[in-house]
Design a protein around this nucleic acid. Structure first.
Lengths: 345, 345
DNA sequence: GTGAAAGCGCTAACAG
DNA sequence: CTGTTAGCGCTTTCAC
C-alpha cells in the first residue's frame, strides 16, 4: 500500500545516480550515458514514478495550464469553441482550466480574481461585457504580469489584445441582401445586446443591406434582444402584432432563433409559408430535424483552435506588441429556402 | 513596467515584518496584531501582490484543482454535468481542469496519463468504456496515490469507486409501460452500447416492461445503437421496413432520438400520427420548438453537483472505504403525448 | 557525462 | 504575537 508518491530523490537512490541525472533523463535536457539512462528508466518503472508538475512549474516558473473563460457552457456555440481550444491545447501539451461566468459580470470579476492566484500560462476569454472597466483592468494586469490574453468573439475597449472574431457584419449583410433579393420590403431584425461587438456588427450588416437596397430603416423593425430566447420571443410577438408587420425577420444568434420560432408557434405562423426567417449560427438540432432554416454560419471549433494558436504564439515571442493581432474568420451563407418570399403572402 | 510578480519576501520587506507574518495574514492561519495586519495589507495593495498557488500547493502538497473527464463536450447532457461540476467546485474554491476523450479509448488513456503529472486533488470521470482494463488500472492507481475518483453516469468493473448515476432502468420501465398501456403491442427499442451501464440498464427496463405486460420479446425489435445519430437512424429505417414494423419506438438517449426523428422524416412518418416515440433525456431544442415528445428526464446539472459533492467528501475523510458510495438520482417521466396510440393507425 | 548546491515562493513547526 | 528555519520536488548553473 504505497500511498506515497515516489520523488526524484528516491529514483536517484534506486538508480544509484544523482537527482540531476534523473532530471536530465526525464526531460531529455542534456545527454546522459546510455548506462545511466537505463538505470534511471528502470527505477522509474519499478517505483511507478511520475514527475510532479507542480514542483516543475515552481522551479521553472512556467506553468503548463491555460485558463478559458466562457459566458455559457451550455450554449452550443461556446461548447464548440471549448472543444477547439481543448483539442489545440492538448496538442501543445497544455492543460485547460475551465471557468464559467454565466453571463454575469460579478462572477466574471470573481473568476478573474481567483485566476490570478493560479499561475496560468495564458488566458482565452469571451468577456461578458465590452465596457466593463474592472474586467479590462484585470485583463491588463494579466498582460502586465506576462500572461497573454486572447479575446474570442467579443472584445473589450483596448486594441492591445489579440482576438479572434467572425466576419459578422459581412455575413449578416449578405443574409439580409438575400432576403431583399427575394422580394422582401419589410425586413425586421432582433438584435443582440448592442454593447457587444457581435450585437453591433450584426445590426450594422442589416442596416447596410437595407441602405444598399434603398430601403429606409424603420425603428419599429429593429428590436433589441439579449441573445436569449425569452426576450427574443417577446420582441418577435410584438413585431408580428405591428399594424404593418414584417414579412421577414433576421435573428441575431442561435438562442434568438429559438425565440423567434417559439413566437411563430404561438401565433400559428409557419416559416416559409407565412413569414421568412434567417438566423445567425447554424443549429445542429434544426439541421437534423430537416428544418429548412437559412443561416449565417461560422466555424466555432476553428475559432477555438485559432485562439489557442494565437496564445501559443505569444508564449514564443518575447514581450508584447502595442496593438494586438486580429484573426477574422469568414462566415458562410447557408441557404435552405427560409429566406424566400413566403408562399401564402 | 513591473513585469515582475511580487513575492512574499518583497511584501515582508515593504511591510517591515517577516514572511511568516505575511503568510499568516494571507491565510488568516493564526492571529496577527492589528498593526502588523494593516502594514501587510497596505504592502499587498501597494505591490499588487497575489499569492502564488503553485508554491502553496507544493509546500502543502495539497492541490486546489480537480480534473473532469468527459467523452463529448458537445453533447448537452455532458455540458450540463460540466456546468454542475464547475458550479459546485467554484463554491469549494476549487479549479476545474477539463479533459475530453471524444469517446475514444486511446485518447482516454493518454489523458489519464498526463493527468498523473498534474497533482490533481481528485477526479470526476465518465469513462468511455466500462471494461477497459487499462483505464481501470489507471483509475486504481489514482486512488492508491490518494487521489479520489468519482464516476458519473457510466461505471467500471470495480465496486470500489464512488459513483453517481440515474435510475435509468426504472425510468425506461415506466416509459415503456406507458406505451403499452396506450395499447401498443409492437414496441421496439434502439439501445445504447451494451457494454455500458446506461445502455444495459435501459434495455433491461424495456424488457421488464414487456415481460410485465406478458408480451414476448422479439429480437428484431431490439436494435443495438451506439448513442449516435447516424447509427440510430439506420436502425430505425430497418425497423420501419420490417414486415411487421413496430407501432412504437423507445430511443435510448438524446442523439438516438435525433436519429429516429431523422429516419421518420426520410420515411415521411409523423410522430403521433403514424408512429409513437419515447425518448431518453429531454431535449431543450425540441421543447422550445414545442415538439410534443415524451421523454424520460433526469437532472444532469444535479448529477454534476453530486459528483463534486462526493469528491469533496473524500477530501475530508481519511483513507478510503472498501466499497464506494452510489448516489442514484430519480428520473422523471415527462408525458407530452407521443407515447399515445397514433391517430392514423 | 555527472554531481553538489542554490534556488522557485510558500507553509509550518519551533523558539522566543 | 512574531521571526527563523527547514522543507515541498524539481531545474539549473557551475565545477569536476
Amino acid at each position: 500500500m504505497s500511498k506515497q508518491e515516489a520523488n526524484i530523490y528516491e529514483i536517484a537512490k534506486e538508480a544509484g545516480v544523482s537527482i540531476a541525472t534523473v532530471s536530465r533523463v526525464m526531460n531529455r535536457s542534456a545527454s546522459v550515458s546510455e548506462k545511466s539512462t537505463k538505470k534511471v528508466m528502470d527505477a522509474v518503472r519499478k517505483l511507478n514514478y511520475v514527475p510532479n508538475s507542480t514542483a516543475r512549474s515552481l522551479s521553472t516558473s512556467l506553468s503548463r495550464s491555460i485558463g478559458i473563460v466562457v459566458p455559457d457552457i451550455n450554449n452550443p456555440f461556446f461548447s464548440k469553441i471549448l472543444q477547439g481550444v481543448t483539442a489545440a491545447a492538448d496538442e501543445q501539451g497544455l492543460q485547460v482550466v475551465l471557468y464559467s461566468t454565466d453571463e454575469d459580470t460579478e462572477r466574471e470579476l470573481k473568476v478573474l480574481h481567483t485566476m490570478r492566484e493560479h499561475r496560468l500560462r495564458g488566458i482565452i476569454i469571451t468577456p461578458v461585457s465590452e465596457h466593463c472597466k474592472e474586467t479590462l483592468d484585470l485583463l491588463q494586469d494579466f498582460e502586465l504580469r506576462g500572461i497573454p490574453v486572447v479575446l474570442v468573439d467579443r472584445e473589450v475597449d483596448d486594441p492591445h489584445f489579440d482576438r479572434v472574431v467572425a466576419q459578422d457584419e459581412d455575413g449578416v449583410y449578405q443574409a439580409v441582401c438575400s432576403m431583399l433579393q427575394a422580394g422582401h420590403k419589410r425586413v425586421a431584425i432582433v438584435t443582440g445586446p448592442l454593447h457587444s461587438r457581435p450585437g453591433k456588427e450584426r445590426l450594422r450588416g442589416y442596416e447596410r443591406a437595407l441602405e444598399d437596397f434603398g430601403i429606409p430603416l424603420r425603428q419599429e423593425y429593429i428590436r433589441q434582444g439579449d441573445f436569449r430566447m425569452e426576450r427574443a420571443c417577446e420582441e418577435t410577438l410584438e413585431l408580428c402584432s405591428l399594424e404593418e408587420p414584417p414579412t421577414a425577420i433576421f435573428s441575431s444568434n442561435n438562442m434568438t432563433t429559438y425565440g423567434c420560432l417559439k413566437a411563430f408557434l404561438e401565433l400559428g405562423l409557419t416559416v416559409g409559408r407565412d413569414i421568412s426567417l434567417f438566423g445567425f449560427d447554424d443549429i445542429d438540432a434544426l439541421k437534423w430535424l430537416n428544418y429548412k432554416l437559412s443561416v449565417v454560419s461560422r466555424d466555432a471549433y476553428e475559432m477555438g483552435r485559432r485562439a489557442m494558436g494565437l496564445l501559443a504564439d505569444c508564449f514564443d515571442r518575447e514581450g508584447f506588441s502595442e496593438v494586438g493581432r486580429r484573426e477574422s474568420l469568414p462566415t458562410e451563407l447557408i441557404l435552405r429556402g427560409s429566406e424566400q418570399w413566403p408562399e401564402s403572402l
